[in-house]
Design a protein around this nucleic acid. Structure first.
Lengths: 113, 113
DNA sequence: CACCATTACTACAGCGTGTAGAAATCGACG
DNA sequence: CGTCGATTTCTACACGCTGTAGTAATGGTG
């Protein structure tokens, strides 16, 4: 269900890559785009509502962190997509048919264990 | 790119499951929801614009077919999601860590060959 | 308590989707 | 060939989501 808009996605990227918690001002500064802080705050609130972001309210500039890592989130998306799949195995078969050999090898390794 | 709304998705489901081409009236009849044909036509046109549906214009009730099978489409979605992943292999690792054993086995088989 | 930084609330435009009426079109039948 | 009914196109509008920000409230610090 978590369809993000462009700005929302940019903000999530910062939180994911930055590693740690950021204030609204931090976020605004790191986005190159010269936005009002209120804009960033709005976006952060919406991301909080979508459970993508957790907010530390006890500090004065509130600090925001991503609820899940980028990889965790991506896996969630994958599962969401697969949930609509009908025949999961058919999809996976087709999927691995199209991935580069290096990744196929990596998968084989991961599955062997 | 292909984010579908609820009705759009229902229509695609019909086209996918029905197997063959349907007219707008066919679609309207199969949706339980008592919609105007024009509504269905609008949705079909939008799906055509999104390249989800092909339309046979030469017959009088135009006939509509899904451009890709449900599985093909799902694979496209998967790749789209993976495209935003950052570290694809990390995501895949996490992903296969969470799938049921039966599917893991199936994957192993598929990768072996 | 007053002031500045921060946050909350409110607003609005633009776009996608669901929904459908009115107008145009097309083929068949007389 | 003209008419009529079915089909398609065009136009419209409401609603929700996103980007964007102003204004009002709030909270700590001197």
């Amino acid at each position: 269900m978590a369809t993000l808009g462009g700005l929302e996605r940019s903000v999530m990227s910062l939180l994911w890559d930055g590693g740690e918690s950021l204030s609204a001002n931090d976020v605004r500064d790191r986005l190159g785009e010269d936005l009002a802080v209120t804009t960033v705050l709005t976006v952060l609130s919406r991301l909080e509502r979508k459970d993508m972001v957790r907010r530390e309210r006890s500090t004065r500039p509130h600090r925001y962190t991503a609820v899940a890592s980028r990889e965790e989130h991506t896996v969630e998306m994958l599962n969401e997509v697969l949930g609509t799949a009908g025949d999961r195995e058919a999809v996976l078969a087709r999927f691995i048919g199209g991935i580069p050999d290096s990744e196929a090898a990596a998968l084989r390794r991961l599955l062997q264990k």
